[in-house]
Design a protein around this nucleic acid. Structure first.
Lengths: 345, 345
DNA sequence: CTGAAAGCGCTTACAG
DNA sequence: CTGAAAGCGCTTACAG
C-alpha cells in the first residue's frame, strides 16, 4: 500500500486492521487499548514516520499546545538590538517548553503594538510569556485587558502588590541593597544613580530603593540630585552620564540601573577623562555577557536567568491547567569585578 | 445575542445575516463579495474582536502559516550559552516572518537530535530555518534526509557547491582575505590560525583559505604548524591558544576564526604575560556585541546579519511557494579596532 | 455575488 | 477493549 503524502491515522488504521479511533487511542497511550494492538499500531506508526497532525489535534481539543513569547524591544535602540540579558533566559524558556511538550512561538513587539489581542484569540497559543525592560505604565492597561479577556500570561519584571496578572522577577530591592552595601563598605558616600527611578520603571525604582535602604544602615542616603533618568540601553546610559556630569555636583560612585546603562556611562566618563574606578566607582546590574569584557570589568548583580526561564514556563503551564500559581521573586548575587576598585587591578 | 467563548465565523454570519462561507470570503478579502456585505461583516468581526482560528484554517488549507527556527547549540558549552552572533539575526528573522504573515516557532537543538523529522511531518511548520555554528559533517546526512523528504529549508552557513539544500552565508573567504590583507599590511609575517580549518568546519576553512590567499599576494603563506583546532566558543579558543603556545613556535599575529575564539585566546595570552597588540596582533570574526568591549577592543570582520535574516526568510518563502531560489553569499567588512595595533591606543 | 455541501485529520463521548 | 458517529472551525470547489 502506497500512501500519497504524509500518512494519517486512517492510513495506519487500515494497515493495522483496526478503526481510526483505536489508532488515536493507541498513539496517545490510552490504557483501554489492548497491549498487542497498541504495539502493532506503534510499530506501523514508527515505520511510516507518522506524526499526529497538530492542526487537527489542536482544533479538536480546542487548545494549541504552544506558548507565545513576546519580547519587547526597546523602541529607542536601533532594531538590531535585543537586550543580551534575555539571551540565556530565551534558552531556558525554550528548553522548559520542550520539557512540557509545548511549542514556542516567538515574536518581537513594540510596547505600542496591539499584541494583547492576537495570539490567544486566534488560538495560536494557550498562553503568553512577556519579556522586556520598559515603561511599565505604558502597558499596564494592556495587562489589565489580558486579565479581563481571560488570557493566561506571565510576565518577567518587578513583582508589585497591585499588579494585573502574575509576574516573575528578581529581588530588585535586594540586588540594589547588595550594591549599596558594597559601595558604602568601600567608603563611598555620594552615590549617583543612572536610571529612571520612578513607578514607570518599577524594577529600577526597587533597585534604587534597595540601595538607599542599604546606605541608610551606614548613615547615608541616595541623593535625588544625583539621579539621572535612563532606560536600559547603552546610548541612554551615555546620555544620562552626560546629564549627571553637566550638573557639576560631586559624587564618588555610580550605580547604573543596568549593565547596558553602565557600559554607556563608561564611555561618557572615559570621554571626560574620568578614570574608573580611581576617580569614580561604577556598578551595574544584570551581569550580561559583555559585563566581564569591559575595561575595567563591571561589578554587577547577577540574576538567576536560568531558573527564571523555567519558572516562567512552569508558572504559565499551571495557569493554563488551572493549578494555583503565584508571583515570585528570585534571589540575586553580587559579582565584584574591577569597576568598583574593590580588588587590586 | 451573547456568545459563549470566542466568536466563530458562524457567529458573525448569524449577526450579519449571511452564510458562514460568505464571512470567510469577506474576511479573506475575496473580490467576489459585495462591498456592502463585506464591510458589514468586517465591522462585526472587529467589534467582536474576532480572529480566524489558525488551527481550523491551517487544517483545511493543509499548511501551517508558520516557520520553524532551529538553533543548534554548541554541545560543549554549558546550556546557558547561545552564540551572541545569532542575536541580531534572530531579530531580523522574526521581523521578516511578521512581514510575510508567518509565525515563528523556535527550538534549540543538539546536532544529534532527530529534528530532521518533526516540524514538517506534524504540520507544525511549512519550512525550517537552520542556524548554528557546528560540525558540518555531523549533520550533512540529515540535510540530505530533509531534501529527500521534500522538506523546505534554508540554512545559515558556508555556501558549498555540492551541498544538500540551500544556504545563505557570508563571504567567508572574502572576510578571511580582509584579515590577511590587514595583518600582512601591518608587517606581520607569521600568522597563526585558531579554529578548525577542515571540511568539518567549512566556514572556518574558507576564512583560513581566504586569509592564505591574501597573504600570497604579499609573498606570505599560512603555516599549518601555527593552526590549532577550535570550535566557536570561548573555552575552546582558550584551549587552542594554550595548544599553540605550548608548541613554542614563533608567531606575530593570530587570526581567530570567530570572536568567541578570540576572546578565549585573549585570556590565555594575558595569562602568559603576552600583550595584545604589542607582542601579538589578534583578529577575530563576526563582530559580536562583546567584540568592542574587550581590552583591547577586537579587530574583526562584520557580517550583515540583518540582511542575512531577511534573506533567510525570503528564500524559504520562495521555496515554499515554489518560486526559484538560490544560495547566496553576503559581503563582509573589516572592522579595525585596537587588538591589531593598527591605530594608536 | 451567495449558499449548500464536503472535508481537512483528529479526539471524545457513547454504545456495545 | 473496540467501533460508529459527531464535530472542532474553517476553506473551497460547485451550483445557481
Amino acid at each position: 500500500m502506497t500512501i500519497k503524502g504524509k500518512p494519517t491515522s486512517l492510513d495506519i488504521a487500515h494497515l493495522a486492521g483496526v478503526s481510526q479511533p483505536t489508532v488515536s487511542r493507541a498513539l496517545r497511550g490510552s490504557p483501554s487499548v489492548n497491549r498487542e494492538t497498541r504495539e502493532r499500531i506503534l510499530a506501523i506508526a514508527r515505520e511510516l514516520n507518522y506524526k499526529v497532525d497538530k492542526n487537527a489535534s489542536n482544533l479538536r481539543r480546542q487548545q494549541s499546545g504552544t506558548l507565545a513569547l513576546l519580547l519587547f524591544e526597546d523602541p529607542t535602540s536601533d532594531q538590531s538590538h535585543i537586550n543580551p540579558f534575555f539571551l540565556p533566559m530565551l534558552g531556558s524558556i525554550t528548553r522548559a517548553c520542550a520539557r512540557h511538550g509545548q511549542d514556542l512561538l516567538i515574536s518581537f513587539q513594540q510596547l505600542s503594538d496591539d499584541w494583547h489581542a492576537d495570539y490567544d484569540d486566534s488560538h495560536k497559543a494557550d498562553g503568553l510569556i512577556l519579556l522586556g525592560y520598559g515603561d511599565y505604565l505604558a502597558y499596564q492597561g494592556k495587562l489589565r485587558t489580558l486579565v479581563e479577556q481571560g488570557t493566561q500570561f506571565v510576565r518577567w519584571g518587578a513583582v508589585l502588590p497591585d499588579q494585573p496578572g502574575i509576574s516573575i522577577g528578581c529581588d530588585n530591592a535586594g540586588g540594589g541593597a547588595l550594591i549599596g552595601e558594597h559601595l558604602a563598605g568601600l567608603g563611598h558616600r555620594r552615590i549617583a544613580f543612572l536610571g529612571d527611578a520612578s513607578s514607570r520603571y518599577p524594577e529600577f525604582l526597587d533597585r534604587y530603593r534597595g540601595c538607599d535602604a542599604a546606605l541608610a544602615r551606614h548613615g547615608l542616603a541616595m541623593d535625588p540630585a544625583l539621579q539621572a533618568d535612563a532606560e536600559s540601553a547603552e546610548d541612554s546610559g551615555y546620555a544620562a552620564a552626560q546629564t549627571l556630569l553637566a550638573r557639576g555636583l560631586p559624587f564618588d560612585a555610580v550605580f547604573a540601573a543596568s549593565d547596558l546603562i553602565a557600559i554607556g556611562a563608561l564611555r561618557a566618563f572615559a570621554e571626560h577623562g574620568l578614570r574608573i574606578p580611581d576617580d569614580i566607582a561604577l556598578a551595574g546590574f544584570d551581569d550580561i555577557p559583555g559585563a566581564r569584557m569591559t575595561t575595567p570589568a563591571l561589578t554587577t548583580v547577577v540574576q538567576d536567568t536560568l531558573t527564571a526561564g523555567e519558572l516562567l514556563v512552569d508558572t504559565l503551564m499551571r495557569l493554563i491547567t488551572g493549578e494555583p500559581a503565584e508571583s515570585r521573586r528570585l534571589p540575586t548575587a553580587l559579582v565584584v569585578r574591577d569597576s568598583t576598585g574593590a580588588r587590586p587591578l
